[in-house]
Computed example of a mutant assay.
Amino acid sequence: MMKSIELFAGAGGLGIGLHEAGFRPINVIEWDSYCCDTIRENKTRGINAVNKWNLTEGDVRSVDFREYEGQIKLISGGPPCQPFSLGGRHRAYDDARDMFPQAIRAVREARPQAFIFENVKGLTRATFRNYFEYIRLQLEHPDIVARKSEDWADHLARLEQHHTSGRRSDLTYHVVTQVLNAADYGVPQKRERVFFVGFRDDLGVSWHFPLSTHSHDALLWDQVKGDYWDRHKVARKDRFISRSTDHIRRMDGPPIEHPWNTVRDALVGLPDPEHQPDVAATLLNHRFQPGARSYPGHTGSPLDEPGKTLKAGVHGVPGGENMLVRPDGSIRYFTVRESARLQTFPDDFLFHGSWTETMRQLGNAVPVKLARVVGEDVARHLKEAA
């Protein structure tokens, strides 16, 4: 058993995927009460993935991680992050919106063999390049701590100097970063997240991110050749083929990857909540939500493509991002259960709270399957290094 700690757990997407990869958290930390209620409810229901989680509801800043030194293989989580441009002068540990300093502190104090942290793709934008590099260098050299009253730009300069000097402190990690599109790994959603994965220097691990297993071209091949439609028993008159398929028709054989999974693939077996409400109501979190509307830039997810990125929304659920577009052009909101399918949560996992609240939890989550793919590869390398 590979023991771990999960920070900023949310509703558990990253943690469940890592559980499926073989990690067992001895502490799961989350401050949001609704997310904690979701985890607790599923623990009470005996759901395997979270049944033995030791849940701590509270502020990660109050947790002393030194007691875990020598006990854990992995620290993981999705730290809330408010990146800053280099034009501003901000103390490194001042901003409660930015929890990366706490993730780095957890690594420094617990000294795990590896870590997996993820965040929104926006963190990689050119505007935030220096702050992205600041996070990466802190993770590589967690012992080089910001001094009292030192702003992050000055701390970054010290980290750069230490890194280029060739010196190594007592605790050093080899860190790899990459933006991963969940659709490229079999998740029925085009969702991009940046991952930071690090292995402790003394392990001697050589690692790269898992190569993608699914592709858009493979989906187009399946649709052009008809296998996709035959599999779903779609009549010929209702089949839609993307215009951008000329290169597919010229190919000698199918791509080596699996096809991207689509919304239609994800919803197999689920009754339509609008037209079969009584049947749908027998399933967990599968109730029709009225009020969907389409507007420019927010036109929903077509049935025969991977879903658009589910979003949490600052002021409620954004319409277009969390909405299904049927082939006839009609629209409706995804139910919570359908959204959970798009995020590859297990069907027996129950989300606690109102529709808006549960959609917020899902919009902030890491797809379980993507977490498992990354976690399995990290686990394999840790076992080989043992």
Rank of each mutant, 00 (worst) to 15 (best):
I5P: 12
F8R: 07
G15K: 04
G15P: 08
A21Y: 06
R24A: 12
P25C: 10
V28C: 12
D32F: 09
D32P: 03
K43A: 09
G46K: 02
I47F: 08
N48M: 08
N51A: 15
R61D: 07
D64H: 09
E67R: 11
Y68L: 14
E69F: 01
Q71H: 13
I75F: 00
I75P: 06
I75A: 01
I75S: 00
C81V: 03
Q82F: 06
G87D: 09
A92H: 03
D94G: 05
A96S: 12
A96E: 13
A96V: 12
P101Q: 04
A103D: 01
E109L: 08
A110T: 08
F115K: 05
V120I: 14
T127F: 12
F132S: 05
E133C: 04
Y134F: 15
R136G: 07
Q138N: 15
P142I: 05
R147G: 14
R147F: 04
A153I: 15
S165C: 08
T172D: 04
H174L: 05
V176N: 09
V179E: 15
A182D: 07
A183C: 10
R191A: 10
R191F: 13
V205T: 06
S212L: 12
H214F: 10
L219Y: 08
L220H: 08
Q223C: 02
Y228T: 01
R231A: 15
R231S: 14
R231Y: 12
K233P: 01
R239W: 07
H247K: 14
M251E: 04
E257Q: 15
V263M: 01
L270K: 10
L270P: 05
D272F: 04
E274Y: 08
E274I: 04
H275Q: 13
D278H: 09
V279P: 00
A280M: 03
A281E: 14
Q289I: 11
Q289T: 12
R293I: 10
S294M: 13
P296K: 02
P296H: 02
G300I: 11
S301C: 12
S301I: 07
P302R: 10
P306R: 00
T309W: 08
T309G: 10
K311T: 14
A312D: 00
G319E: 14
G329H: 03
I331F: 01
F334N: 09
T335Q: 00
R337A: 15
S339Q: 02
A340R: 02
R341W: 01
R341H: 11
L342E: 06
T344P: 13
F345V: 07
D347V: 12
F351R: 08
G353K: 01
W355F: 15
A379Q: 09
R380P: 00
